[in-house]
């Protein structure tokens, strides 16, 4: 047998990119189930549709780019993007909305920048932000919690956007949206007058808790480090807590912020995207904390009910700068101030 001539190390752990991606997908399952429980089949239909689209687009672009298709498809990164988009889009998203979001995420945000590892922006967030700006009505048709559509109704809505009796009976503003427009009422009065708010808050709290469980699982598996999610949640909690203490009538509490909207999904599945976030431990802390701060600012003062897509895209822009200034001190450089740039 001819002897191999290879560089050290000659041994390798069983760690693989596809394994990381698979764990990420698995960790979304509790959230997915919770979301389906509260909002019906929409998310599941969306998920299957988004996965099919993502893999197809990925294969197509790899073929156009003359790259080997199988090894790249099998890394699972396209599926992660599809999952994140399907979970973030409203359950009442029609087929074309998901189509546009996935197309933009995979083709434009990912492959036009050079494919996995080279994209400066989180692909799912680019797709999401595009739809949010281009199709604001569809993007805010969030399913109600009182009466969910059955599978047939959901299927019909998904393809035709027609609904006997109209969709209005089934949609509902999200709690964050409600709280942003209190119509002159304090939050307590709002909760008293609008029973939907309480129900919505309960639903999103359950969903967020489910994502938290999945995220903690990934943390336990050391798929990512704790720095970015903890920093993000801490900064969001701290800001909302401080403002709530100051004006409880205007600002929702820290727990409402942390357990509503896409907080936990973002904290454990989007902020932790390694490709587009800062890379050193200190950098991840700064990155996460800044996302939390931006989320609070946009939620409280911005024009959109939830803020993760914009907060994360903004911080994606800042990640290289953060990296430049957060280089850790290497072994033997402890006494050396010049090393810290």
């Amino acid at each position: 047998m001819a002897l191999l001539n290879l560089s050290s190390p000659h041994h390798h752990s069983l760690n693989r990119t596809s394994r990381l991606m698979m764990w990420v997908l698995l960790a979304t399952v509790p959230g997915l189930l919770a979301q389906s429980y509260w909002f019906g089949y929409g998310t599941l239909i969306n998920l299957i549709w988004a996965c099919a689209l993502a893999v197809s687009f990925e294969a197509l672009v790899l073929w156009l780019r003359k790259r080997p298709i199988k090894p790249f498809i099998s890394d699972g990164s396209a599926l992660v993007t599809a999952f994140l988009l399907a979970l973030a889009l409203p359950p009442f998203s029609p087929w074309w909305l998901t189509f546009v979001a996935v197309l933009f995420a995979i083709v434009f945000a990912k492959h036009l920048y050079g494919g996995l590892g080279n994209n400066p922006f989180n692909p799912a967030m680019v797709g999401y932000a595009l739809c949010l700006i281009a199709f604001p009505v569809s993007m805010t048709q969030w399913a109600g919690t009182e009466s969910t559509l059955n599978l047939a109704q959901q299927w019909q809505w998904f393809w035709t956007e027609t609904m006997s009796g109209g969709i209005d009976g089934y949609t509902q503003a999200t709690p964050l949206d409600l709280m942003r427009h209190p119509k002159g009422l304090t939050l307590d009065e709002l909760a008293a007058t609008n029973p939907l708010l309480g129900l919505g808050l309960t639903a999103s709290a359950w969903i967020n808790a489910a994502y938290l469980v999945g995220g903690l699982g990934l943390l336990a598996l050391r798929i990512f480090t704790w720095h970015a999610p903890v920093a993000m949640l801490a900064s969001l909690g701290l800001c909302s807590g401080l403002f709530h203490m100051g004006e409880p009538d205007l600002y929702p509490s820290a727990s409402q912020h942390l357990f509503s909207g896409a907080t936990m999904l973002a904290a454990f599945f989007i902020v932790t995207d390694p490709v587009t976030s800062a890379t050193s431990r200190k950098g991840k802390l700064i990155f996460g904390a800044s996302v939390g701060l931006l989320v609070f600012i946009i939620r409280s003062y911005g024009a959109y009910p939830d803020a993760f897509a914009f907060a994360i895209l903004l911080m994606n822009l800042a990640a290289p700068l953060i990296d430049t200034y957060t280089q850790p001190k290497a072994y033997g450089h402890q006494g050396n101030k010049d090393n810290e740039r």
Partner: peptide
């Protein structure tokens, strides 16, 4: 076993976690 094809770096940072020289 020789490594098949290596994939793109996704900056997962696991290398940073294990680097004894505390590099990136």
């Amino acid at each position: 076993a020789p490594v098949a094809d290596h994939h793109a770096c996704i900056r997962c940072g696991q290398c940073e976690v294990v680097c004894p020289a505390e590099l990136l």
